[in-house]
Design a binder for these strands. Sequence first.
DNA 1: TTTACTGCAAATATTTTGCAATATC
DNA 2: GATATTGCAAAATATTTGCAGTAAA
Lengths: 162, 162
Amino acid sequence: MSINYCNPEKIKDLFTKYMEIHNLRKTMERYSILHHICMIQGHFDVEMLQKRLDEDNFHVSRASIYNTIMLLLDARLIVRHQFTTQLVEYELQAAAETHHHAFCNYCGAIKEVKETHLRKEMTQLRITKFTYEYHSLYIYGMCSKCKFRLSRKHKKENNNNI
Amino acid sequence: MSINYCNPEKIKDLFTKYMEIHNLRKTMERYSILHHICMIQGHFDVEMLQKRLDEDNFHVSRASIYNTIMLLLDARLIVRHQFTTQLVEYELQAAAETHHHAFCNYCGAIKEVKETHLRKEMTQLRITKFTYEYHSLYIYGMCSKCKFRLSRKHKKENNNNI
DNA sequence: TTTACTGCAAATATTTTGCAATATC
DNA sequence: GATATTGCAAAATATTTGCAGTAAA
């Protein structure tokens, strides 16, 4: 149930500005990658992104995708998530800043959590000899489905022992 | 400047208890790996851990190190950090819970931040349909050294333009 | 005695790199 | 026209897996 709170045109303009400042070339590949990222609801990984581009008949090499993702990270237009060892995911910064992430340790589900109070506190955090730029907060635990499933399993096992 | 706030004996006992509950075998390898982790000040990676074990004439295979790390993560005795794409690091949970981490985007330095207020708030966080177990908070920004270095570089460039 | 665990090597997965071709400025 | 960027394939890196031997229970 994630909504992209993004304005694709605005994000594109920010990227253009970023590339101009850094004397980078504004290639079709880079714009196309960003465009498809804006079209994805929620998280994505490199695999998924390339598949979407291919489906849209715009093939971009793996190397270029990694290159562009690096630029977008540096431009602070996307953020990187890694909840488990296996999978690296990304998300539009514009979408990510609207919520925290709660990860279920038992089924891997990711729940988006609105919590403006905490976010405000952290943005106001002052660390000595350190200039705050951004942060990431991941909350780990058990989702309600798993809690229900595991409590039933537990009951069943106890009954079997009688 | 990181201190291991660990009591190796206590941590070993917790691991023993964990293995007994889960019907796992208490092997020399597993205890040796945990022992060496307790001896490391601050963060470590798989490479470093194996090197330390080898230096102590206790060779353990890569596979067993990964296996044991997985158990220790599951037992909540160590935590996993990944500040960048390249490097996965681990840390004793007992040490990690005493601080947050602030990562410098420009030189990669990791600063440990004492901030009990935030930690308490997060532990008290209640999310609907979700049972909190633990969280991770990373703060990203610029350390004072890089700020100084970059401001000097900037000044120098401006002078050259005159 | 049973079988979980280990070491080793091979397999898998992910990301980076070298280089010739191409497209941007 | 100069050169940054791309695609491709190969290389580098990190993690997992299969299997035979070993050791914990």
